[in-house]
C-alpha cells in the first residue's frame, strides 16, 4: 500500500464532490492515516466549479501545487480538461479518472465559448499521464438507482486503483454509515464504479 496520496477532485456544484472528499478524509483518519481536505465553498447556487484537494499521509499545505496531484478524480469531463490543462494540477506520473458525461456550462448555451471535442482531447491526454481511465459515472449512478449516487460511483472507481494509503474497506464502511437511508443505493453505486475501473484496468488496452 502506498504511504501517501494527493487527490484532486473537480466537478460541478451539486454533483457531491465535497461529500466524496470528506468521506475520503474520514476513512483515512479512522485508519490512522493523516488527512487534510480543503474545500472552497461559498455560493449556494448551482453550476459553478467545485475543486477539492484531499491530501493523505501527512501533508501540511491545504492546496495542491502545480503538477502535484497523483490522482485526478473528475466528475465532469470539461472540468477534467481544465484540471489537466490551464489549472496544471496533475503530475505527468499521475492517474486520471474522469466521468464522461458532459454538463454544458451556461457560457456554451450563450455562445460565449465552445464545449471541447472530448474524444480528441482525451486521445491527446492519454499519452501524457500514467493512467487515463474514463467511465460514464452519471449513467452508472442512474443504474445503481439514483443520479445522486454519482459521487459514490466515483469513489468506487477510485478505490479500484490500489492507490489509497488505507484499506478500501474503511471507505466502504464510511459510505455505508454516511446516509443510512440511502446506504443500499450508495453501496451499489460504489460497487458498480469499482467494477467498471477494475475491468478497465484488467483489459490489455489499459497500460
Amino acid at each position: 500500500m502506498p504511504e501517501r496520496l494527493k487527490v484532486y477532485l473537480i466537478g460541478v456544484g451539486g454533483q457531491g464532490s465535497l461529500t466524496a472528499a470528506r468521506l475520503l478524509g474520514e476513512a483515512a483518519l479512522r485508519s490512522g492515516v493523516e488527512a487534510l481536505v480543503s474545500e472552497v465553498h461559498g455560493m449556494a447556487q448551482r453550476g459553478g466549479i467545485v475543486e477539492t484537494a484531499v491530501l493523505l499521509g501527512g501533508y501540511r499545505s491545504p492546496i495542491l501545487g502545480r503538477g502535484a496531484a497523483d490522482l485526478l478524480l473528475a466528475f465532469e469531463p470539461l472540468e477534467a480538461l481544465r484540471a489537466l490543462g490551464p489549472l496544471k494540477k496533475v503530475s505527468p506520473k499521475g492517474w486520471v479518472i474522469t466521468n464522461t458525461h458532459p454538463i454544458r456550462p451556461i457560457t456554451v448555451s450563450l455562445r460565449l465559448g465552445r464545449y471541447p471535442d472530448l474524444e480528441r482531447a482525451f486521445a491527446e491526454v492519454k499519452g501524457h499521464v500514467k493512467q487515463f481511465l474514463k467511465l460514464d459515472a452519471t449513467a452508472l449512478a442512474q443504474e445503481a438507482g439514483s443520479p445522486l449516487a454519482l459521487n459514490m460511483v466515483m469513489l468506487g472507481a477510485l478505490s479500484a486503483t490500489e492507490l489509497l494509503p488505507f484499506p478500501v474497506a474503511a471507505l466502504e464502511e464510511r459510505i455505508e454509515a454516511f446516509a443510512p437511508r440511502f446506504a443500499e443505493v450508495n453501496l451499489r453505486a460504489w460497487r458498480i464504479g469499482r467494477e467498471a475501473i477494475a475491468r478497465a484496468l484488467a483489459a490489455p488496452a489499459a497500460s
Partner: peptide
C-alpha cells in the same frame, strides 16, 4: 522548475460561472 501542464487546450476552455438555481 515549473512543471509543464500535461495537456494544453488548442482553444480556450469555456468558463463555468455559478448560476441561479433552476
Amino acid at each position: 522548475s515549473e512543471p509543464e501542464p500535461v495537456w494544453t487546450s488548442p482553444d480556450r476552455l469555456p468558463d463555468r460561472p455559478p448560476v441561479l438555481c433552476p
